[in-house]
């Protein structure tokens, strides 16, 4: 217990904005604490971590944690995070996003970050709804489930976040839920340690918007639903599709090696630096710039 309190004291900003803005029964606090435990276990210094978010309930996450944090605009967390990583490759960069943030308004950034394989971690807190704005259906609202903009059920179909990430080329993809808090922090830890772009989908509950609209009795009942309707990935491989109907799988789904973006970039740059022809060409270009600058703005005297 004392260790937990110590961790909280180290990583939270109690003087700032606590208690959180999140509703009672919300799973985001569990995700936040799992993220902190994972970072503590990886052992990276606070000042070497950057946590970036977009907009929405999950967007508030950086406010509470004592890292380098950036709260950006809707859908753009990964774009900002990419800039941070490129400028300071030594930082451990984590983008925390909700499903609407990561997959609707920020969907394009999401798939391209996966494809690029830049060494960052994306946490997608998936509560199947736009919580903060009041329960509009999102890209992960299941078919037939209700949102305030789908009062009689969603006619669209949901993204499978992990499959999307895997398909787009992420080199580490995992999923768990806020019921499985310990599993979640182990997956976050693996994701942070992974060299390349890692995605962890954290299935969570928005009782206030999604739960009440979809006849869930309580936040606890929603957690119980996660317990009863999720299957570890290995076990699921041995099950029939019918048995898996309406359930989600947990665990590491993709873990593979692929050249990382910044390393590949640096390698190419070093190779060019050692190539006399390239050096000559770049030198010529720079000399032409200098000559043009001199013509435009001659040095006096």
């Amino acid at each position: 217990m004392s260790e937990a309190i110590e961790t909280a004291r180290t990583y939270l900003r109690p003087s700032k904005k606590l208690p959180t803005v999140w509703c009672g029964g919300c799973g985001l606090g569990i995700i936040l604490s799992a993220m902190i435990r994972a970072i503590a276990r990886v052992g990276v210094e606070k000042n070497d971590v950057a946590v970036v978010s977009g907009i929405g309930c999950t967007g508030r996450m950086p406010t509470y944690v004592d890292f380098n944090t950036l709260h950006t605009t809707h859908g753009r967390a990964l774009a900002f995070a990419t800039g941070i990583k490129l400028a300071r490759p030594s930082l451990t960069v984590i983008a925390a996003m909700g499903d609407g943030d990561a997959l609707a308004i920020g969907g394009n950034h999401f798939i391209h970050a996966c494809r690029r394989n830049i060494d960052m971690t994306a946490i997608v807190a998936n509560n199947s709804i736009y919580g903060m704005t009041g329960g509009q259906y999102s890209p992960t609202t299941p078919h037939g489930k209700r949102g305030t903009t789908a009062p009689y059920g969603n006619v669209e179909h949901a993204f499978d976040v992990a499959s999307l990430a895997a398909g787009a080329g992420a080199t580490f993809v995992a999923r768990s839920s806020v019921y499985h808090a310990r599993e979640l922090d182990r997956l976050f830890e693996k994701a942070i340690r992974h060299k390349g772009f890692s995605v962890v989908e954290a299935v969570t509950n928005c009782y206030t918007s999604y739960g009440r609209l979809n006849n869930h009795a309580s936040p606890v009942e929603m957690l119980r639903w996660m317990k009863e309707n999720s299957v570890p990935f290995a076990a699921a491989a041995k099950m029939d599709p019918e048995e898996l109907e309406g359930k989600f799988t947990r665990g590491v789904i993709v873990d593979r090696e692929l050249p990382e973006f910044i390393e590949s970039y640096d390698e190419q740059a070093s190779a060019l630096a050692e190539n006399p022809v390239a050096v000559e060409q770049v030198g010529n270009i720079l000399r032409r710039f200098d000559a043009a600058a001199e013509r435009l703005n001659p040095k006096s005297g």
Binding site: H74, Y130, M132, T133, Q136, T148, T149, A150, Y152
Partner: peptide
Amino acid sequence: AAFPITPQTELMHKFAQHVAD
């Protein structure tokens, strides 16, 4: 066509309800 943003969101809630009804 709509996308939620505070404080407009309720406007489209209401309209979405009319559509659904």
